[in-house]
């Protein structure tokens, strides 16, 4: 029985590896690859079933049984790849020195990073958290906060004012960048406590709910400053209604959504605007629906226009 399971797992692993290594998925992050493969299996069940039910794969199994073998295998392989990437960001790329600039912060230590890592990995076990994390993951991969922050600090207009004067971050550009990066990674943790309870289409929550989640998250991450947790959780609040949403939270929300949609490696057709410029332009028209700060979108759009991003 054990042997049979192992053989099936091996076959599933070989099949999933084959799917994951398809060149059309090359530019996607592991979570997006998983999403694409799941959809592929769903859309092509009829055509794939005869092959997957053949002696070469899983003879005698129904489609549901085949999926129950493939999906855990897919999730496990994707988890491994995603965890590796997350670890690299948390333990190597992000400098947590910015935490000391936040009020009431604890002295920084490795355990804090480990606790962040654990909660992100737990988040990835939830379906909605996994989906939401795709945007943050891409935003980090495509370095969205990085290149926009350069322009924000260079022009020192609205967003800079909001970061420095309104949110009162006494940090350097690099430190703010790292805060936004962690805020992006932490954002999806909301789904640990609230799967399926908020507006799925816009992804927005209410103030009361945000406060509740902040408390729960704080309990799980006692050493992480509340400002950082607040930035991550309040990124789900509509700015039109709640003007107190921290600037880093507003940026987190925008970069997460941008990361979900844009594909910077896609060939831009002649006659089409660049991906980021298109996304920001369209999002300026949907700012109320998604609760984004229109002035922030306008400024980011201006940078994408100037840089032809």
């Amino acid at each position: 029985m054990v042997n049979k399971m192992n053989k099936e797992e091996e076959k599933a692993a070989a099949f999933i590896t084959r799917l994951l290594s398809n060149p059309s998925l090359n530019y996607l992050n592991p979570l997006q690859k998983e999403e694409q493969i799941t959809t592929f299996l769903e859309l092509n069940a009829v055509q794939l079933f005869p092959t997957l039910a053949s002696p070469a794969f899983f003879p005698g199994k129904t489609w549901t049984e085949i999926l129950s073998i493939l999906q855990p295998q897919l999730a496990s392989m994707v988890d491994e790849m995603a965890a590796e990437g997350i670890k690299r960001y948390l333990f190597e790329k992000i400098d947590f020195g910015f935490l000391s600039s936040l009020p009431n912060s604890f002295p920084f230590n490795e355990k804090m990073i480990q606790s962040l890592y654990n909660i992100i990995i737990r988040t990835l076990k939830t379906n909605s958290g996994r989906l939401d994390f795709i945007g943050s993951y891409n935003a980090l991969l495509y370095k969205l906060p990085h290149h926009y922050l350069d322009d924000i600090f260079e022009s020192q207009t609205y967003i800079h004012f909001e970061l420095i004067k309104v949110q009162r971050l006494k940090m350097s550009k690099a430190e703010i960048l790292n805060m936004i990066r962690v805020s992006l990674m932490l954002r999806s943790s909301l789904h640990l406590y609230s799967e399926g309870v908020f507006d799925k289409s816009s992804g927005l929550i209410t103030k009361q709910y945000a406060i509740k989640i902040e408390k729960l998250l704080k309990k799980d991450l006692p050493k992480i400053p509340v400002e950082l947790i607040s930035s991550a959780v309040k990124s789900y609040l509509p700015f039109e209604k709640y003007r107190f949403v921290p600037t880093t939270g507003r940026l987190t929300s925008i970069f997460n959504a941008m990361g979900k949609s844009i594909r910077p490696h896609v060939r831009v057709d002649r006659g089409a605007s660049s991906p980021e410029k298109s996304w920001l332009s369209v999002s300026r028209r949907n700012y109320k629906y998604y609760g984004w700060d229109i002035k922030m979108l306008d400024e980011l759009y201006r940078y994408s226009l100037e840089n032809n991003w």
Partner: peptide, 13 residues
Amino acid sequence: QRTVFEEEKHSDL
């Protein structure tokens, strides 16, 4: 932008 994620399933494969 508001509807596509809910309405259509798409795979590059």
